[in-house]
Amino acid sequence: MAKKFEFAPLQATKVEKKEAKVDEPKKAVKVAAKVPSELHDHLVSYCFYNYSTHEEVITQALQAFFLDKEYKPLPEKIRNRPRPGRKRTNSNKGPKP
């Protein structure tokens, strides 16, 4: 004969959510850049052994590079121009099914 167990009801616990403050850019932009193969190999192996992404490492490197640099903001005319790239029209939206 199987014994019948009675469990006491669980007490509700208060769970505190701690959010880490991360300085993430407001808007991300994809950038293609040529990098010497030796530096790329260093990047890949560093990311592999430190469990980080290429994006994290490159962002940290750029932040460290620009830390002591001074620069002027871009002129309004240059800042507001459309991004370079292929313009999408009806004629080049891709292959037709």
Rank of each mutant, 00 (worst) to 15 (best):
N90L: 15
S91T: 15
Y49T: 15
S91H: 14
A20W: 04
L10Y: 10
A12E: 07
E55A: 13
V44Y: 06
K69E: 13
A8F: 01
I78D: 15
A61V: 13
R86K: 12
K27H: 04
E6W: 11
D23W: 02
H40N: 15
V44L: 07
V44E: 05
N50A: 11
P36S: 00
R86A: 09
E19Q: 07
K26P: 00
L10Q: 10
E70G: 06
V31R: 10
F48V: 08
P75G: 11
A12Y: 06
K77T: 13
G94S: 09
V44R: 05
E76T: 12
M1V: 03
K96I: 12
A20M: 05
D23C: 05
K72A: 10
K18L: 02
H54P: 10
L10K: 11
S37Y: 02
P97Y: 08
Y49E: 15
H40V: 13
A28K: 08
A8L: 01
E19S: 09
D41M: 07
P73G: 01
E76Q: 12
E56S: 14
A8I: 03
K3L: 07
T13A: 12
E19W: 05
K69H: 09
K27Y: 01
L67V: 12
T53F: 02
K17Q: 09
K96F: 06
K34Y: 09
Y46M: 04
E70V: 07
F65N: 06
R79D: 14
F66G: 06
T13N: 12
Q60F: 12
V35Q: 04
K3G: 06
T13V: 14
Y71K: 05
K30M: 04
P82S: 09
V57G: 03
E55I: 05
K69P: 03
K27D: 03
C47G: 02
L43M: 10
K18F: 00
G94W: 07
Q63N: 13
T59P: 00
C47I: 00
P84S: 14
Y46C: 03
A64E: 10
L10I: 08
Y71S: 03
A20G: 05
Q60T: 12
K34E: 06
A64Y: 09
N92M: 02
L74F: 11
H42F: 14
E24D: 08
N90Y: 15
A20E: 12
F48D: 15
E55L: 08
G94N: 08
P95E: 04
Q60I: 08
K93A: 03
L67C: 11
V22F: 02
D68S: 14
V29Q: 10
R83M: 13
L39Q: 08
L62D: 01
Y49P: 06
P95K: 08
P73M: 03
T13Q: 15
E24W: 07
T89G: 09
K77M: 13
T13R: 14
L39C: 09
V44P: 02
K34W: 04
R83D: 10
Y71H: 07
K87H: 05
A12I: 08
D23T: 00
H54G: 10
P36C: 00
E70D: 12
G85W: 02
R88K: 14
